[in-house]
């Protein structure tokens, strides 16, 4: 498969490779959950652009339908996880007051 022929450089694979490299560094180095999920969204955008530049249009449609489902599941899970962690910390800090 020759995609970038006829001399000029194509712009969509270049932007997609840039998004994937920046997103890989960003997901690892950030520590808050929402920052990591935002960077994961960034990375998946790069993946869809690279799939489209290979002319696999059906795979691109399936990826862009399935990917928000995964993001919504991750967001609901992270919200419940933060709530459980805060609730447990508040409960354990209230325990010595009850013990007096």
């Amino acid at each position: 498969m020759k995609v970038g022929e006829s001399g000029n450089v194509e712009l969509l694979p270049l932007v997609s490779i840039f998004c994937i490299v920046i997103g890989c560094i960003g997901v690892i180095l950030n520590t808050h959950y929402l920052d990591k999920i935002i960077m994961l969204e960034f990375l998946t955008g790069g993946l869809i652009g690279l799939i489209v530049s290979f002319y696999y249009l059906d795979v691109a449609i399936l990826t862009s339908i399935v990917e928000p489902v995964s993001t919504v599941i991750l967001l609901l899970g992270s919200l419940k996880y933060i709530y459980i962690k805060r609730s447990r910390r508040r409960y354990s800090s209230k325990l010595p007051v009850l013990g007096k």
Partner: peptide, 15 residues
């Protein structure tokens, strides 16, 4: 949870 979010990057490399 952080480790689960880091797992997504090798999966994307396999893709």
């Amino acid at each position: 949870f952080v480790r689960l979010l880091n797992i997504e990057i090798p999966a994307l490399g396999v893709m």
